[in-house]
Computed example of a mutant assay.
Amino acid sequence: MQRENNSTVQHTRMSPERQGFGANPVKQRETGNYAQEYIKGFVDKWDELIDWDSRADAEGDFFIQSLRQHGVKNVLDVATGTGFHSVRLLEAGFDVVSADGSPEMLVKAFENGRKRGHILRTVQADWRWLNRDVHGEYDAIICLGNSFTHMFEERDRRKALAEYYAMLKHDGILVLDQRNYDNILDNGFSTKHTYYYCGDNVRAEPEHIDDGLARFRYDFPDDSSYHLNMFPLRKEYMRRLLREVGFQNIETFGDFQETYHDEEPDFFIHVAEKSYDSISS
């Protein structure tokens, strides 16, 4: 297993040529299946989906400013994907370790970082056993890109959050985002296609939705299509899990805005503190 003090991840296994969901895709509701979803063909197109420049313009300095306000210096990016936020934070002066469960994503992230003049410190890790593969304590952990919704079982979600909590310094913060599944489940899917998936001529829409599965289809200009199966987390459920694991002072933003009641946001961003202020000595 690669450690975070090395520069690259050994690409020790070949990804399948096709995504693996079994005979009935809507029955595939297992956390570990993400390894069968992020195949090389999909990963190679991921940057078309998010469009680094458009996404940077859309989110502005929200994450950079949030981290600076909390005095953050070192960051563990546990869902680095193709490296977008790791690179942005490096360029803003943070010390960053980049982790992901997908070796394909880490290879792409390393390539993207090198093209921009950075050597990413990468490590392949499953969040449920994060402390086994990543070492040290961090001022902040970020889990972005709707990634936490790959956790299908509550025990997996609790285990992952507990691993995050354990790796944070006593006054550290967790920044975690998610789609607005409340709106999708209650009112149907709509999107401003502005903040997260900004690529031109790329469609990202749900193909199936129920209380236990959001199956999204991603269509690209070359007529290729890929899918992701995710758990539709409701906002208040996610906030409750964070509190029960031990996080305090949880702020939730909608599309990078503190006040979002006038219009349903596409995404929620939770900023949760590991704080002991309320505990008397």
Rank of each mutant, 00 (worst) to 15 (best):
G93T: 07
E104D: 07
R128Q: 04
K192Q: 02
A92S: 09
T122F: 00
N74T: 04
T191L: 06
E104M: 02
G145L: 05
K192P: 06
K169M: 07
D95F: 05
N187K: 14
V96R: 09
V72K: 09
E111T: 05
K108G: 03
D100Y: 03
D139Y: 04
T82Q: 03
A125D: 07
Y165S: 02
T191M: 08
E91F: 10
K192M: 00
S86C: 02
I119Q: 13
L90V: 04
S147F: 00
C143M: 03
R121K: 14
F94N: 01
A79G: 09
F84D: 15
V97D: 08
R158L: 15
E153W: 12
K73P: 00
G136D: 09
K159G: 02
W127S: 07
R157Y: 09
G81W: 03
A162G: 09
N183I: 00
A162Q: 10
K115P: 01
I142S: 09
G117R: 07
V72Y: 09
K108Y: 05
K115D: 02
L106Q: 04
R128L: 02
L168D: 00
W127D: 06
R121Y: 00
L120S: 13
G81Q: 08
S86E: 03
R155M: 10
R157Q: 13
I142P: 06
F152K: 06
S102E: 01
D126I: 09
L185P: 13
L185F: 12
A92Q: 04
I141G: 12
N112F: 04
H135K: 14
H85R: 05
Y165P: 11
I173C: 14
S147E: 03
D182W: 03
F189P: 08
A79M: 05
R116E: 06
K192F: 01
E104G: 03
G113L: 04
I173W: 08
S190Y: 00
D95E: 13
Q178F: 14
H85F: 10
V107M: 12
L130I: 01
S102C: 04
G145H: 03
L89P: 01
N146M: 05
K115C: 01
L144Q: 08
Q178H: 14
D126G: 10
W129C: 14
V96A: 10
M105Q: 05
W129E: 15
P103S: 02
F152I: 05
D133F: 10
G188N: 08
D177M: 14
A160H: 10
H150L: 08
S190F: 00
R116S: 04
E154K: 11
D133Y: 09
L90F: 04
